[in-house]
Design a binder for these strands. Structure first.
Length: 559
RNA sequence: UGGGGGAUCGUCUAACGGUAGGACAGCUGACUCUGGAUCAGUAGGUCGGGGUUCGAAUCCCUGUCCCCCAGCCA
């Protein structure tokens, strides 16, 4: 608490509430996902806000599953969501809660409202109910069932619970005002009859509470002080407050809304996400190109980077389009400090070093991570035949090209200075097929004895020691900056056809032989990569998390 | 159209009547055994129009644009 608190408007409100003595038992918040889908970056921000506010004020944050709709929810999602929250690094105040834990209390409260004449059983069909609601500009009309006696309503509500009526035939509605300009106040539905088995309560219920009826009361039951949610619930706040008042609830939670964000070149709406998965545009909910937490995890994004990204976004009531570069930056910032380095050649070109005897192996020591001396050293084998990346050689180099070309020198990272002596090309295509070169024997470790400056340093691998690996390169899933704004019909056309490039046979240094799924590395001069769970007996599979910044290719692109 | 919200560098975000600042992205340069990292520098903004004030991003009036709401989803 000695650290300066964030200055966003939610922190200001909570500070005021605390000063006014409104939270005698401390600040309590909650993250309330519906277990009907996978968490994504948007949820990550909500999680950071919910947990962050609680932590900043020395309070608690709970994880509560808003499981009021058994037709769309299931235990698999519950497990996946809880795993994702913990993976991000947050520890919910035990135990994990469920709105379904409060079904009985909620029902008793509904009965109380019925008795007070504040709720009634309505027999309008879904269609008729819609017709009675009016429109944006016209008031609604009262339901013909609006003025039943409290006794009759109680009897009917109990019968609804008992399962005496068919699904959809009746609802319990709050009796508020069918002419209210806020549509949510036009006698909203509190209970609907659903003949569905619930993942926790089984077949115990045949009526299920609506979000509006359940949410605020669940907050109240749990002693939540600040119920943080996104902007689209703003109009619901009047109803949230109406229920608390109608029930005479004393310790009132306060709903505060903040803005979601959009990520450029990405989609986060549940519907569009579902679409790209179901249309087979990606390989599943954990596809590394998706902004789902499962996808980001598989891609190799460290959770700390995701949290740092979210925290850097700020909390406001303004809609925003966050550039993907922001996420990339957070990932690089984290990985630069923590990822062990490795040499990997994605597009190999063989070089025979004529002044190194066949069969001889020389070993070089180099840092695991120059940014982290504590990470120690690693050993690299060097021999007569090596691979370098094709991009590091040019027959006719442009100005300022610091890499290898006929007759020039370059440093092989941590090993020797190499000169290119001879180039073999395919006579029919002109393509370079093999290089011959020689090393400066007085440059062992990479430092020439005469102190001459070598501008370029490239990565390499001893051909005899290199490990084959599959490498998957990812680009944004969408070419359009704002695919969320495209029509569903055009969504497929907005997909980037080159979002995935698979390199079947790349080479990595032998130290990676035992790398386990999830481990992250920086392939020097190339980017950050993580071991994919597809790795196995057939070999290693790497996902590119994000490339390194590359001012050379930018310069080339500029011309 | 009724109601509820929102407009500050390209992007995100500060400034709460007193010098419009930071971050990301961009550009320059320095340094470098990663053309990475790091460091230094640079460019770039208050939605429009009125008004109040010594002074307005901030207060008032007015206009414009954008988002959300007509599920027995959350």
């Amino acid at each position: 608490m000695s650290e300066p608190l964030s200055t966003d408007f939610i922190h200001e409100i909570v500070t005021e509430d605390l000063a006014a003595g409104k939270c005698p038992d401390g600040v309590v918040t909650r993250f309330p996902p519906e277990p009907n889908g996978y968490l994504h970056l948007g949820h990550a921000k909500a999680i950071c806000v919910d947990f962050g506010v609680a932590t900043d004020f020395g309070g608690r944050c709970r994880l509560r599953f808003d499981d009021t709709n058994p037709t769309r929810e299931n235990q698999d999602y519950v497990d996946a969501i809880e795993r994702d929250v913990r993976w991000l690094g947050f520890e919910p105040d035990a135990p994990v809660r469920f709105t379904s834990d409060y079904f009985e209390q909620l029902f008793q409260w509904a009965l109380a409202l019925v008795d007070r004449g504040r709720a009634y059983v309505c027999e309008l069909s879904a269609e008729d109910l819609r017709l009675h609601r009016g429109s944006l500009s016209e008031p609604g009309r009262d339901s013909p069932w609006r003025d039943r006696s409290a006794d009759e309503n109680r009897r009917l509500l109990l019968a609804m619970r008992a399962g005496d009526f068919p699904e959809g035939s009746r609802t319990l509605r709050a009796k508020i005002d069918m002419a209210a300009p806020n549509l949510h106040l036009r006698d909203p539905v509190m209970y609907r009859i659903l003949r569905a088995s619930h993942h926790r309560t089984g077949d115990a219920w045949s009526v299920y509470p609506s979000y509006d009826w359940a949410h605020g009361q669940s907050d109240a039951i749990e002693g939540v002080t600040h119920s943080l949610c996104t902007l689209e619930f703003e109009d619901h706040r009047a109803l949230y407050d109406w229920f608390l008042t109608a029930l005479d609830i004393e310790r009132r939670p306060r709903q505060i809304e903040f803005a979601r964000f959009n990520l450029s070149h990405s989609v986060m709406s549940k519907r569009k996400l579902k679409r790209v998965v179901e249309e087979g545009l990606v390989r599943g909910w954990d596809d590394p190109r998706l902004p789902t937490l499962a996808g980001l995890r598989r891609r190799g994004c460290p959770p700390e980077a995701i949290v740092s990204f979210c925290e850097g976004l700020g909390v406001t009531r303004r809609e925003s389009m966050v550039e993907l570069a922001r996420l990339d930056h957070a990932v690089r910032e984290r990985l630069n400090l923590t990822a062990p380095r490795a040499l990997a050649v994605l597009d190999p070109l063989k070089v025979v070093i004529d002044n190194v005897p066949e069969g001889e192996v020389r070993w070089f020591e180099t840092a695991v991570n120059p940014e982290d001396p504590a990470a120690g050293m690693r050993r690299l084998p060097f021999s007569r035949e090596i691979y370098i990346d094709r991009a590091d050689f040019m027959l006719e180099p442009p100005p300022k090209y610091h890499r290898l070309s006929p007759g020039t020198e370059v440093r092989l990272r941590s090993a020797y200075i190499l000169r290119c002596d001879h180039v073999e090309t395919d006579p029919s295509t002109g393509a370079v097929t093999l290089l011959h070169g020689s090393i400066d024997p007085d440059s062992s470790g990479g430092q020439p004895a005469d102190g001459r400056k070598i501008k370029g340093t490239i990565h390499w691998l001893s051909a005899a020691h290199a490990l084959p690996a599959e490498v998957r390169l990812y680009e944004p899933l969408f070419t359009a900056a704002d695919p969320e704004a495209t029509d569903d019909a055009d969504l497929l056309a907005a997909v980037n056809p080159e979002s995935l490039t698979v390199i079947e046979r790349a080479w990595v240094e032998p130290n990676l032989a035992d790398a386990a799924p999830g481990e992250r590395f920086q392939f020097e001069r190339v980017g950050y990569f993580a071991v994919d769970p597809d790795s196995g007996a057939d070999g290693l599979v790497f996902n590119r998390i994000v490339g390194l910044r590359d001012s050379w290719s930018k310069a080339v692109a500029r011309g």
